[in-house]
Design a protein around this nucleic acid. Sequence first.
RNA 1: GGGGGCGUAGUUAAGUUGGUUAUAACGCCGGCCUGUCACGCCGGAGACCGCGAGUUCGAGUCUCGUCGCUCCCGCCA
Length: 595
Amino acid sequence: MSTQFSSSLTAAFRSHVCGALRAEDVGKKVTLSGWVQNWRDHGGVIFIDLRDRYGLTQVVFNPENAPAAHELAHTLRSEFVIQVDGEVVNRPEGTVNANMATGEIEVLVAQFKVLNRAETPPFSIDETSEVGENVRLQYRYLDLRRQPLQEAMVVRHRVTKIVRDYLDNHNFLEIETPVLTKSTPEGARDYLVPSRTNLGSFFALPQSPQLFKQLLMVAGFDRYFQIVKCFRDEDLRADRQPEFTQIDMELAFVDQNDIITLVEGMIALIFKKIKDFDSAPPYPRIGYYDAINKYGLDAPDIRFDMHLVDLNSVFTETNFKVFRSVLDRKGIIKGLNLKGGAKLSRREIDELLEVVKIYGAKGLAWIKVNEDGWQSPIVKFFEESEVTALGQAMAAEVGDLLLFVADKPEITNESLGRLRLHLGEKMGLIDADKLAFCWVVDFPMFAWDEQEKRHTAIHHPFTAPLDEDLEKLESDPLAVKAKAYDLVLNGVEVGGGSIRIHDAETQAKVFSLLNISDDEAQEKFGFLLDALSFGAPPHGGIAFGLDRLMMLLLQRQSIREVIAFPKTQKATCLLSGAPNTVSPRQLRDLAIKKA
RNA sequence: GGGGGCGUAGUUAAGUUGGUUAUAACGCCGGCCUGUCACGCCGGAGACCGCGAGUUCGAGUCUCGUCGCUCCCGCCA
């Protein structure tokens, strides 16, 4: 980051920024403006650390040098905004501060002005110690003065700059799409905005610019991108906010490979420039089913191994009741081998049970592989042949802890997949500094929603099926795979996209499979179907979650640490008080009655 | 919709089996100090223990409710 832009500053306030001055500037007359970070009044000489976003400079008020300024300096307090005129001088022998970038020099003040006083802040700006998050959010503008958020905003800017430059170099155009748009079915809840000029009708805030960017492809803008806010009215998580930012892209005349290669270049550039990390594309590509089989989750963390092992074949003929009944109900049995885990206490194993329970597993069977044999509550139910086969399948060695879940496939996979991550953290199997990218590809097109008794789109209803699966669309929809791809980093989905359907006929077929009637499709998406009929080029795209990307780049635990003005878990803004009630007049204009 | 954690001076925390005047550190205010940079020294103010009920002779502590923050499940095409 450049701190040397003195020539562009308004000289009246600043000749330099705080953090710019070095030993070679000694002798210069300078003007600095900033906030009082800290003051040290020695009765005689007074020191102040003056802060702006570029750094700190120690300024000195000496009664012999400038008595009037020194007198006035007694009144200075935390976060006062001041402007000082003075001379850059070397610090006396032995008082150089090696911890400060500007630690070799100080500014000897000739005169200064208090530009603004400040109330005592509710928390110290320099302090890195913890402050309750509600206080931080209420005074977010003060929290933003602190180093972690300053860094986050700077890096965030740098990332978007890298993205814009990269995409500009690749012929992309940044084009804005509407924020007041049409509510779509499927997917997340929409944020709705009532229309005054069309009483009873509503706009929806976009969950993504999906439909409009496809229209831009039809319009001939063969490479589009936008760094854009998206809105989903769903409950929050540490990595989820109701409004979030996507790096959204769409390209025409490309296939999946083209897109993957192009964005790998962009991601690699970001990590190279921000973290000096060489991510070495091409990143591994993992089929969706492989990911589920080996990692239990569709966003695998490949920083460590410890794969899930499918044990159905071992127990095909088992008489162990628990496994038997699961297999009879088309469930699956899978295991994890925690190397060296036999030393875990009974209590620690019980804690692992609590982990899988969260994801619906009813139990967690275990075997300790000890020197003197297997210790386990369940082995006594196994045949000799099963014990042998199990040991082989799990590659069991003395000292291992074997863990099993038997349940419906989704539950077995997810709970063991999550347990794998839990153990990875707990047992220190994950190198926290590692960055492991992979693509997950060949997603299924549809999932069966048991509650609603219909197919739902795994990605979204505009995703194209693999060419070779086209014919299965009607005969066996659940077997159809999609031209969809997710970029996963350290087990976190940071981006996802697909090749889109570009002909109206296939699109209509997919809608009908999703149980969206012709009328409904026409009403909701008619404008897209129309557009597809006017010469839509083959196209596809991808969108990255900028906030999650920032979390990973900066190794922050919460998305709120990379967003300037985040919402609380109840989706409120503690700073502004949004959402709030509105006047009867406003409601009357919108013909809205309070419930 | 559900499960867990937290809520005590401005801030961060301590507070025993329920028991006199609720501790501390930092910050704040006043005084002293001419080389500090987590400046130092002396003194001081500052809390209806989130809010409301209940149990009790007595509640920061126990019970119930409620509000807020947070983590997770559901949800997030």
